[in-house]
Design a protein around this nucleic acid. Structure first.
Length: 393
RNA sequence: GGGUAGGUUGAGCAGGUGGUGAGCUCCGCUGGCUGUAGACCAGCCGCCUUCGGCUGUGGGGGUUCGAUUCCCUCCCUGCCCA
């Protein structure tokens, strides 16, 4: 049984309002994270807006999906348009006209995603820009400075993630470096109205994951990110890693954020294991590529059969797409590569995802959570495969 | 009517001047995507019994061991002239 927990930081307050049950049936909990620009109910999903935009959406669209906090990317905004420019223009919130909380990822993910375009050493990372090939050096201190200039609600320490499938020695080295960078990030961070999260690594190695959790939790971060997952691991391996890390945080009052997870089915399992925050490009990217999430599965609007389907994508969905347009129309827009398709589909998948989080929170608050998981699993559908939820429309 | 350029797998093309035409881009079909180098990527896209085989260069005929290629004829299309 976890004692009622409240964390009070300079720019973040986290209050657990429903703690996990004493019987150990789940580590799921609900909470309220108060940041400079607003309050975030947890468990919560953060849509990703890498380039200071959730692709295809206006800020009003984002709000309408139910999002309360979004993520932006330090590395991308440093490269373009430049963090100094954003600072001159009044900071990231004003720049993109989003007045809610923003978390900035540190650029650590680009260490993995940019592949051959980077070299890591003890002091930092040297990137070759994916935009023009120019060289840029990212250190923990620079990543902090850029995020302070952007003025996000939550800054994140620069880390060195590796693929979960990496050899143990690679994981160990990256994890230890991530720890040194975490301490440097904290030392560099000065902005009083900005919270700062640190990142746990450790891959799939239980002892490394545990050691990393203990170390990062020992530092005065405002939240604990669990990194290095949502990669090429199996769901079982991911669950195992969470089962190592999160029990070590049982008495820690700070929010836990699993970086990069985004399918409803995955979110559900991770909440069950005690995660409070998530982000992922998945719902938005998959939407742009024609896949719509509905209760029980997914619809691929590129499929021929939708061209004559007069019904809505999802019967009871309040999103911009489902309120006004048919599957047939959206299928046409995708075929014609019309820009409206991307907006409508993104509105829907984010609405579906955020509504799913509402249902999870409601179940936890109602005290029915572990029991209702099977029902929620059905709604989430499977992550992959070609199963499709058929709805009479 | 005369001249001229053409007719290649749904569309548009490449190639091929007597020695095995299934190559490209669209379109179409399907799958994938998890801290965004992603409105992207991958596979398929003539037929079959598919690690292989068959058919196919407008139709018909001819020459030849062998024809998309050379010859005859017909059909169709664009352009120019009348």
């Amino acid at each position: 049984m976890t004692a009622p927990a409240v964390y009070e930081g300079r720019a973040a307050r986290y209050e657990v309002d429903v703690a996990p049950p004493a019987d150990g049936s789940t580590r799921a909990r609900t909470g309220r994270l108060t940041l400079t620009h607003g309050v975030v109910e947890t468990p919560q999903f953060m849509p990703v807006g890498t380039n200071a935009t959730v692709k295809a959406l206006t800020p009003d669209d984002i709000r309408d999906t139910g999002a309360s906090i979004i993520l932006a990317n330090t590395y991308h905004l440093y490269l373009r348009p430049g963090h100094d420019r954003i600072a001159r223009l009044g900071g990231l919130h004003r720049y993109m006209d989003w007045d809610g909380p923003i978390l900035t990822d540190s650029g650590g993910f680009q260490v993995v995603s940019l592949g051959d375009l980077r070299v890591v050493d003890e002091d930092g990372v040297t990137f070759r820009s994916h935009l023009d090939g120019s060289q840029h050096r990212f250190t923990p201190e620079l990543a902090v400075g850029v995020q302070e200039a952007l003025g996000s609600d939550i800054a994140v320490a620069l880390d060195q993630p590796v693929f979960p499938s990496s050899p143990r020695d690679v994981v160990a080295e990256a994890t230890e470096r991530t720890h040194r960078w975490a301490a440097r990030s904290l030392a560099a961070h000065a902005r009083e109205d900005q919270a700062m999260f640190g990142i746990v690594q450790g891959g799939l190695e239980p002892d490394l994951r545990a050691a990393s959790t203990r170390y990062i939790a020992s530092l005065p971060f405002d939240g604990i990110c669990i990194g290095g997952l949502a990669g090429d691991e199996t769901p079982e391996q991911r669950d195992a890693a969470l089962d190592v890390a999160i029990p070590l945080l049982a008495d820690d009052p700070r929010p836990r954020y699993l970086m990069g997870l985004g399918s409803p089915a995955d979110l559900l399992e991770a909440v069950h294991r005690g995660v409070d925050l998530f982000d992922s490009v998945l719902p938005a990217r998959v939407a742009r590529n024609g896949q719509l999430w509905v209760p029980g599965g997914r619809l691929n609007l590129r499929n021929q059969r939708f061209l004559d389907d007069a019904g809505p994508v999802q019967e009871d969905c309040p999103c911009l797409l489902c309120r006004r347009f048919s599957r047939a129309y959206l299928a046409h827009l995708f075929r014609a590569k019309e820009l409206l398709a991307y907006r409508l589909a993104t509105c829907h998948n984010l609405t579906f995802t955020l509504d799913f989080m509402i249902r999870i929170r409601a179940a936890i608050r109602a005290g029915t959570f572990p029991a209702t998981m099977s029902e929620l699993r059905v709604r989430a559908g499977r992550v992959s495969g070609s199963e499709v939820a058929e709805q009479s429309a």
